[in-house]
Design a binder for these strands. Structure first.
Length: 372
RNA sequence: GGGGGCGUAGUGAAGCUGGUUAUCACGCUGGCCUGUCAAGCCGGAACUCGCGGGUUCAAGUCCCGUCGCUCCCG
């Protein structure tokens, strides 16, 4: 499933290739988030044009709407949405975390109420794997318990213990799916910000020998420094031959940090969300379109970007679109930011190939701004 | 010519029987956003209430005058 192609001699960074059912994907890779079987404000056509071969979907959202029956009738998420390349589906573990007031976690699973209509539901490790089987997900994530920063050791340990137990049950359910159309199941390491708990979690998850490993529970309110330290610590325990995925990371600064720690995969709503809110990534840092200083500016958002948006539209025009609340604003901004991310990861990959990753990182941050 | 209505931030409005720093929406403006309940969220600036006078301890809020807009009748 995964092959390491190159390792950076000066850091833990590496490049590789994920061989998935809907095509190969080079790593390090950024995966746009398509919660409701759609990446907001952009077409699948455009995503393909930019070159994305792997996007996210969300079990929690798609299960609630349109529902499993409909997806089953279509023959899976690919057929339903028209997306021909790979899909990684998140389990709903993060929704368990983010929709806290509506949920109750027990050994059996998590019961929660729909944020859409208030109806009651139960997710178990088994039902979540089965749902992703119905989706035809190329990569599946098990149900886990994500925790915020600042909780007690006891609370973190409890969440970790449940996550490990659920991972074991998820694997069993996964092995029960028909082998022909079964995507790879990843394990998720938790443990909050306690190093011994992270170690224990890693050991337990790695013991399951799943096709890939994810690091969860990061970027939940901690400082960039703390994030980097804990990521490095956790990543160092992982075997080289498996793909490593840090969940929920999506700014250039954080990705550089994570790649340097040996991470291969990233996903995040950040680039698409800030795009919808009028903010663009550029080589010089973030550009907030709505600012007055951008009024009437007749030059492209990012002089170093080769995307069709930068080739054709001015900052002043894009600002106007957001001021006028034209839907074209979020669309163009989303296109640019995703193109930016794709291009950024390609440059990172290139630097690993040339063994110049650390220099690239330094030079990039000098222009863009630092992690702090 | 007669009668009625209205004039409150850039715009549109709320302010009942007069009472502490005049409210709301849009706009303007700053920040935030990291396994999407998120084309969102949180802040900020800006009106002294058409103008003049009066009543009152106190007036956007009552009275008189005046200017402007508007509707109806002639």
């Amino acid at each position: 499933m995964f092959t390491v192609l190159e390792e950076d001699p000066e850091s833990r960074a590496r490049r590789g290739v994920l061989r998935l059912r809907h095509g190969d994907v080079e790593t390090p890779v950024f995966m746009p988030v398509g919660t409701n079987a759609a990446v907001k404000a952009i077409t699948h056509l455009d995503l393909e044009e930019i070159g994305f071969g792997l996007i996210l979907g969300n079990t929690y959202h798609v299960y609630l709407r349109p529902g499993l029956d409909l997806i089953r009738a279509y023959g899976g998420l690919h057929a339903f949405s028209g997306w021909r390349r790979n899909i990684l589906t998140d389990s709903g573990g993060f929704q368990v975390f983010s929709l806290a007031p509506l949920r109750k976690i027990r050994d059996e699973g998590v019961s929660f109420r729909s944020h859409i209509d208030g109806s009651s539901h139960l997710f178990t490790p088994e039902s979540v794997v089965e749902a992703q089987g119905v989706f035809g997900s190329d990569i599946m994530m098990p149900l886990d318990v994500c925790t915020p920063s600042g909780i007690t050791r006891a609370e973190a340990e409890k969440a970790l213990t449940m996550t490990s137990a659920w991972a074991g049950r998820s694997k069993k359910a996964w092995l029960g799916l028909p082998e022909a159309g079964r995507g790879g199941l990843f394990g998720i390491i938790q443990g909050n910000f306690f190093e011994d708990l992270r170690r224990r979690s890693a050991e337990e998850i790695l013991g399951l020998d799943l096709p890939g490993v994810a690091i969860g529970g990061l970027s939940v309110g901690e400082s960039p420094r703390r994030f980097a330290e804990l990521l490095e610590f956790t990543s160092a325990m992982l075997p080289k031959e498996k793909p490593r995925y840090v969940m929920g990371i999506g700014t250039p600064e954080y990705i550089l940090e994570a790649v340097g720690s040996g991470i291969d995969m990233f996903d995040c709503v950040f680039p698409t969300r800030i795009a919808r809110n009028g903010c663009l990534f550029t080589s010089r840092g973030r550009l907030v379109l709505k600012r007055e200083e951008n009024r009437g500016l007749d030059r492209p958002p990012d002089p170093d970007c080769a995307c069709p948006v930068c080739a054709r539209y001015s900052i002043g025009y894009l600002r106007h679109l957001f001021k006028a609340r034209e839907i074209l604003g979020p669309m163009l901004a989303t296109y640019h930011n995703l193109y930016y991310m794709k291009n950024f990861l390609e440059k990172v990959s290139d630097s690993i190939k040339k063994h110049t990753f650390l220099r690239f990182k330094k030079e990039f941050l000098e222009l863009y701004g630092t992690i702090d």
